[in-house]
Simulated assay, not measured.
Amino acid sequence: MMSRVIISALFAGALAGLIAGVLQLVFVQPVLLHAELYESGELVHFGAQAVSAHPELPGFEPVRDGLSLIFTMLTYTGYALLMIAAISIAEERGAHVDGRTGLLWGIAGFVAFHLAPGFTLAPEVPGVAAADVTARQIWWFATAGSAAVAMWLIGFGQGWTAWGVATILLLAPHIIGAPEPDTFTGPVPTEIGALFAARALGVGLAAWVLLGCFAGYFWRSEGAREARTT
């Protein structure tokens, strides 16, 4: 069982992380680099002259971008380990998980780790005003954890009690509210911040859907292989 979990998570996480890393390099990184020009003062929003919305940005850098890909693959491998562990528990309860049903697991993971925290604490570009990082991290982990439990209760809970608890877990962090800065300042145009948030969430959705599909596929494939060898 343990080898099945590890092998499935490694393959699923590496593949999904590689695709997510490429999508981030193509769609998210250019927005970050653009924001950094305002953070450093190289570009000034609302300056005396109009600023181009399409400045020249650094091209592909093998070391930086290669490390970024590796880090993303490691990150999604960690997510895959969590997902495969949950899938193994669900299978013991009678659930059937394969590449197709894994898509639902991916959507649930996206809701828990991206959409739920981002609903109140949106992805941020460099240079924007932000509250204390420790307070934000605590709120993020609490929100992601409660949303993950809520997804489990929605999927496997029985009756209105479980679904009611799931609703409370999803709403509570946002009713309490995320830490906010005392004042809203920052040199980055709001258009760049909005584009970054949209692309970060979009890439996150694609990555998690792929992760769920890969996790379900490799979990089922490894199970079939173990059955043939025993």
Score class of each variant (00 low, 15 high):
183 T>L: 03
31 V>E: 08
9 A>M: 13
71 F>R: 14
46 F>P: 00
212 G>T: 11
139 W>N: 05
225 R>M: 04
197 A>L: 11
55 P>Y: 15
152 W>P: 00
113 F>P: 06
180 E>F: 01
155 G>L: 07
62 P>L: 06
154 I>S: 00
90 A>H: 05
228 R>E: 08
221 S>K: 12
175 I>K: 05
113 F>V: 12
147 A>I: 13
98 D>I: 13
213 C>V: 14
67 L>C: 06
118 G>W: 09
206 A>C: 04
169 L>C: 03
21 G>D: 03
81 L>I: 15
225 R>D: 04
157 G>N: 02
60 F>T: 11
106 G>E: 10
30 P>H: 07
98 D>P: 10
161 T>R: 15
168 I>F: 09
62 P>N: 04
42 E>W: 09
131 A>E: 04
168 I>G: 09
58 P>K: 01
148 A>V: 11
59 G>L: 10
172 A>S: 06
14 A>G: 06
137 Q>C: 07
61 E>D: 15
61 E>K: 12
27 F>I: 13
120 T>M: 06
187 P>R: 05
85 A>G: 07
198 A>S: 10
108 A>K: 01
66 G>A: 11
50 A>K: 07
12 A>I: 13
72 T>L: 08
164 G>I: 05
15 L>P: 02
194 A>G: 08
113 F>D: 04
68 S>T: 11
161 T>D: 09
70 I>Q: 00
200 A>Q: 10
135 A>I: 02
90 A>S: 05
32 L>V: 15
87 I>W: 01
19 I>E: 01
132 D>N: 15
108 A>M: 02
34 H>C: 10
86 A>E: 03
197 A>V: 12
161 T>Q: 14
79 Y>A: 13
73 M>K: 02
191 E>T: 14
110 F>V: 12
14 A>D: 00
74 L>N: 02
171 L>G: 07
207 A>C: 12
175 I>C: 06
68 S>W: 11
34 H>K: 12
174 H>K: 11
169 L>H: 03
62 P>D: 02
41 G>L: 10
73 M>P: 00
111 V>F: 01
31 V>W: 01
123 P>C: 09
110 F>Y: 15
185 T>K: 03
124 E>Y: 00
